[in-house]
Design a protein around this nucleic acid. Structure first.
Length: 237
DNA sequence: AACATTAGCAACCGCCGAACA
DNA sequence: GTGTTCGGCGGTTGCTAATGT
């Protein structure tokens, strides 16, 4: 037997909110607050709505600090960067975008960003004509593409890391791969040792490269000593 | 002009974990 | 320790407007 529903769906209004309902909800919250209990809120506020519906309406639409309107390129970058780091944890991503809600970010991702990303990823880096970023070599692009089927995303190494501790770019070269400006670099053993001993930057080390060599012998990983994790990505619109 | 398709977005659903009795 | 309640979350649905045929 499943959980009891939070309210009797036959006795509450559903669907789009009317301006009158919005006003009632807004006025009540501004005057008395939410009372710490959304389930009993509708009765207290005089709304014939489910408590969850009231909560959603307030958080996603009526809150005074909500930002309406299109997303900026800067916001695009933040969403894409965080999505690569932590996946579809929309509430965390939204918390880094003042005035945006998880629902907004989720909708924006599903309707626009995902498509942009697909378009970008199907565009060969070597044919990109973007002048701001130099394109990567075909070999580097192949290298990254090789990682993806193994689900070996450098970002995932530190998935537990707090999102506000994502390493800030310092060194490395920026290269345009699949529509992203990657700040990673294949390193000498010496450089790899220095970086791994002085930062907590996620790294793919030589052992991992050897693993990849075993899994897919077509690409020659043996000439690399390490791969520095992605430092920064920015979406190329 | 009429209909079909697509895009955008608000709202709902159901699961999960924290808090509490 | 166990069961219940509620808030929060991500996935999904469904409505409306915009666009295409």
């Amino acid at each position: 037997m499943g959980r009891a529903p939070c309210c009797d769906k036959t006795k509450v209004k559903r669907g789009p909110w009317s301006p009158e309902e919005d006003t009632t909800l807004k006025n009540y919250v501004e005057k008395y607050g939410t009372g710490g209990n959304w389930i009993t809120f509708p009765q207290k506020a005089g709304l014939k709505r489910c408590g969850k519906s009231c909560r959603l309406r307030w958080l996603n639409y009526l809150r005074p600090d909500i930002k309406h309107g299109g997303f900026t390129h800067e916001e695009d970058n933040i969403i894409l960067t965080l999505y690569h780091n932590i996946g579809s944890r929309w509430s965390i991503i939204a918390s880094h975008l003042p005035g945006r809600t998880d629902n907004d970010v989720k909708n924006y991702w599903n309707t626009k960003l995902k498509k942009k990303l697909l378009t970008a990823s199907t565009t060969s880096p070597s044919t990109s004509n973007n002048n701001n970023l130099r394109t990567t070599s075909a070999e580097d692009s192949d290298f990254y593409n090789m990682l993806m089927p193994f689900n070996y995303d450098p970002f995932l190494i530190d998935q537990e890391m707090m999102v506000d501790q994502i390493p800030i770019p310092e060194i490395g070269d920026h290269q345009l791969i699949n529509g992203f400006n990657f700040g990673f670099g294949l390193m000498s053993q010496e450089a790899h040792d220095v970086v791994s001993s002085t930062t907590d930057r996620p790294l793919i080390n030589r052992d991992n490269l050897i693993e990849f060599q075993e899994i897919n012998p077509i690409f020659d990983y043996s000439k690399y000593s390490g791969l520095m994790a992605l430092e920064n990505i920015s979406y190329v619109p």
